[in-house]
């Protein structure tokens, strides 16, 4: 089987791995690069557990081929952490709001939320719900997550 080298900047670090061309970005991240924080929930792009940022845009990593993101910047929830390992403002808000129960949807939620907040806008709760509608959660009923995003929007990150 032919193998193709894909190189991305993953959470500010250059990462390179060889894989057959049919590997999705999800499989490439989990099986080859050790980014287990990205989860597989459905394989159809519906649940959002596999959401990552590619060049700043949230995508379903299960519905993107690794070979097609060569050279891109990829960000997962670990990439939101500060360099010293402390939580980003958004992550701190999630923690304080009780927005993670089983935590399986959390990585994808954080990525979608971070993209929503990146523009600096202060979305209403309805707008937050609309933006997050593609990330399914079965534990929280979403409310604590909406609380967390609302709070993070009102007092954005102070650069470390």
């Amino acid at each position: 089987m032919r193998r193709v080298t894909t190189t991305v900047t993953l959470n500010n670090q250059q990462v390179r791995a060889e894989a057959p061309p049919h590997y999705t970005l999800l499989r490439w991240l989990r099986d080859l690069v050790g980014a287990h924080e990205v989860k597989e929930g459905c394989g159809e792009g519906v649940c959002g557990a596999c959401t990552v940022l590619v060049d700043g845009r949230p995508v379903s990593s299960c519905c993107v081929l690794a070979v097609e993101v060569d050279g891109a910047e990829v960000c997962t929830s670990r990439g939101l952490l500060h360099r010293d390992g402390t939580l980003s403002r958004l992550q701190q808000c999630f923690w304080e709001a009780g927005a993670a129960q089983c935590g399986f949807c959390t990585q994808g939620m954080l990525i979608t939320a971070s993209a929503l907040l990146a523009s600096g806008a202060k979305p209403s709760r309805e707008e937050i719900r609309e933006a997050l509608r593609g990330n399914l959660c079965r534990c929280t009923g979403y409310q604590a997550i909406v609380n967390a995003v609302e709070r993070a929007a009102s007092a954005p990150e102070v650069p470390a």
């Binding site: 989990r30 287990h36 924080e37 989860k39 597989e40 997962t76 929830s77 670990r78 952490l81 390992g85 939580l87 992550q91 999630f94 923690w95 304080e96 009780g98 927005a99 993670a100 129960q101 089983c102 935590g103 399986f104 959390t106 990585q107 954080l110």
Partner: peptide, 21 residues
């Protein structure tokens, strides 16, 4: 008290290892 759960922090930081990880 509405304490912050330690396991939640790990999940939010992307560090928790689930069964398939």
């Amino acid at each position: 008290q509405p304490i912050k759960r330690a396991d939640a922090r790990e999940k939010i930081a992307g560090l928790t290892s689930y069964a398939a990880d």
